[in-house]
């Protein structure tokens, strides 16, 4: 069964293309464009991994992250954003199952990060 990934980002051109590339690699990808829809999607069906932008309209990214981790505290989440140093805005316990990557990230690096998180390893450049 294909691995389920939830992609949440308001940069439609970016996220739709990334989703297509992941689907070519046999992942099952659901795309949402704001924080409220991201929380609703996680409530509806728990994905294996969430890839989350922190600066989306509607629900702020930090609140989106809190609501998702409140639903599943062990759900792996990759914070993928254009803002450098986002991890400094959070307490370390809030990022227990998170990794931070800065755009533009190579797909190979993103895939390595997904694999590393699913294996429960502290991998990636900025796994926190």
């Amino acid at each position: 069964m294909a691995l389920q990934i939830l992609l949440a980002d308001d940069e439609k051109d970016f996220v739709d293309t990334l989703a297509e590339r992941l689907r070519i690699r046999d992942f099952s990808v659901r795309v949402v464009y704001n924080g409220l829809d991201a929380v609703a999607a996680v409530k509806e069906s728990r994905p294996a991994v969430v890839i989350l932008d922190l600066f989306m309209p509607g629900l702020p990214g930090d609140e989106t992250l809190r609501q998702i981790t409140a639903l599943y505290h062990d759900l792996p989440i990759i914070l993928l954003t254009g803002q450098a140093g986002v991890e400094e805005s959070f307490a370390s316990e809030e990022l227990a199952n998170c990794a931070c990557l800065t755009k533009p990230v190579a797909l190979s690096q993103l895939l390595e990060q997904i694999e590393s998180m699913l294996q429960g390893k502290a991998g990636g450049d900025r796994h926190v």
Partner: peptide
């Protein structure tokens, strides 16, 4: 960074 990300993808 968002522009670069779109170009990369």
């Amino acid at each position: 960074r968002n522009v670069l990300a779109v170009v990369r993808e």
